[in-house]
Structures are given as structure tokens and as C-alpha cells.
Computed example of a mutant assay.
Amino acid sequence: MTGTLAPTATPGSRTPHRGSRIPAAVDELWERREELSPADVHARRTVIAAVNLLDRGAARVAEVDPDSDEVVVDERARRAILLSFRVLGMRASEVGPFLHHDRMPLKRRFDGVRVVPGAIARWGSHFAPGTVLMPSYTNIGAHVGSGTMVDTWATVGSCAQIGRDVHLSGGVGIGGVLEPPGAVPVVVEDDAFVGSRSIVVEGARVRTGAKIGAGALLTGSTRVFDAGSGEELPPGEAPAWSVCVSSTRLRTFPGGDFGVPCLLVIKRLAPGEAHDKLALDALFREHAAAH
């Protein structure tokens, strides 16, 4: 999950910084977006060409900068996606017996990707060769790396960035983000595992090699604690090469004491360690039994 984008535009900035792979013509269209409609042929062609870059993987909405380790957002790419809802008209389509009526077409390029019947991906999402899509849903602007499995009933939201060799287990919900300007998409880095029915939203980050147990909730503001030391870690992040489970932390409110969701790091893995799945399952069960 590395890239070479320039720093993101600051919230409210009207012109993205240099470094975007999306044509600058998108900026001009953005400034007059209220005037645009499907009747504007030039605008439609420009936006389609821009979103096609995302669809092919030639451009991305966000990447992790290898020098700063920060998630860098290409606001121009996000603008192209938002403009597509203005310049594309409603159109009927069908897949087998299923009928659809939408502005956004379904994705048609799946080079080297296994797509199991029932999987749905919108145009403007990208899957690297070697990806496996079980019956699942992936929204526009998402980018999924090679060797990753999007398992049954998992959803990958708009602009979410999923790394290589990731397993998004059954029913996982990866949140999307298109607005407001400056908002950071969810990033799940290489070699991560997200357990069944877990939810990762609001710009949260699952760092390289992290393993998250079933049913966890990770938002951009979720508090994260180390079970061994009690140390509080950066919020909204599953640390690299860690095993994490959902937990609660007691907090006092005017109305009483309540358990507030948090993420608990119960084990650290050696960088690059390929954790045996059975051992990982046993570890998750052992922790659950302790509660």
C-alpha cells in the first residue's frame, strides 16, 4: 500500500495539489458542477475518462505515502466520482433475471480476478489480478490488492483502499467516504485479516499484518488499548502485526457507568509472521471465553 501522490488538499481547498493522475480538467468542471447535467457531452466524456483511470487502477483515490506513512488522498479523483453522479443519466440494465436502474454502471473489467456468481462491483472500482470476489459488494473508487479475498456478504465501501493478501471475512463492513472534502477513506493494509461481521469505518486504518477478531468495531475515533500493558495506543488503528479483539471500557456518564466499545490488542506478532489459522482461531476463542 505505497504510492507517490503529493500531499492531499486541505479541507475546503478548491484546487488539489500537484501529483494527481486525474486530468486537471476535472477541477474546472468541479467549479461549475451546479450547472452540469447528462446533457453536457464534453463534461460526461471528461468524467468518464477520469473514472476509467480508477477502474483500470491507473489512478487511486488514496495511498499510503512511504516516507511519511500518512494516508494521502487525491481530492481530484474523489471529485471525478462525485461529478459522475451529475453527468451520467439513469439507465436500465440487467444481469440474468435481475433488473437494475441506476446512474452508475457495473464494472466489466476483471482481468485475472475470480468473480463468483452473486458478486457485485461498481464501475470505477479496481481489483488487482489474483483477487477473489465471493458474493459481495464493492463500491466505486475502491481499490483491492492482489491475493485478497472479499468473502461472502462483505462490503467494500466507496474509495476504501484494501491491500494485498488481505482476507475480508464473511459479512465484514468496510465503510466508504466521498464527502466531506479532506475526509480520509478506510485503509486496510497488506496481509491483514478482518474477522466475520467486523465493521471498519470513518477513516479507520488496519495496519500491515493486523488480525482482527469477529464482530469488532473500529471507527476513526475508537480507543485502542494493549491488553498486556494497559497502554493506550493511537485511536482508530489496529497496530501492525497485532491480534485484536472487540472489548469495552467502563466510562462514567451523568446517567451512570457504561461500557464503551474499544479495540484490545491481545498479542503481538513478529513482522512477516504467517500466523497459523487454527492457532489464530483458538486465540480468538480463548479470549472470548475469558469474558
Rank of each mutant, 00 (worst) to 15 (best):
T4K: 13
L5R: 00
G19H: 03
S20Q: 05
I22S: 01
W30L: 14
R33A: 07
E34M: 06
E35H: 12
L53M: 11
D55V: 00
A59Y: 01
V61Y: 03
R78H: 04
R79D: 02
R91C: 03
S93P: 02
V95C: 12
G96M: 13
H100T: 09
D102F: 10
R103Q: 15
M104V: 12
P105K: 15
L106Y: 14
F110T: 04
G112Q: 09
V115P: 11
V116N: 14
V116G: 11
I120H: 11
A121L: 06
G141C: 09
A142R: 07
A142H: 08
G145P: 08
G145M: 12
G145S: 14
G147W: 13
A154S: 15
Q161D: 13
G163N: 06
L178H: 02
L178Q: 01
L178N: 02
E179W: 08
V184C: 03
D190Y: 06
D191C: 06
I212D: 00
L218R: 01
S221L: 13
T222C: 05
D226R: 12
D226I: 13
S229Q: 09
E232I: 10
E237R: 11
E237S: 10
S246I: 05
T252K: 08
G255L: 01
G259V: 04
V260E: 04
L264C: 07
L269H: 11
A270T: 13
P271M: 07
H287K: 12
A289S: 14
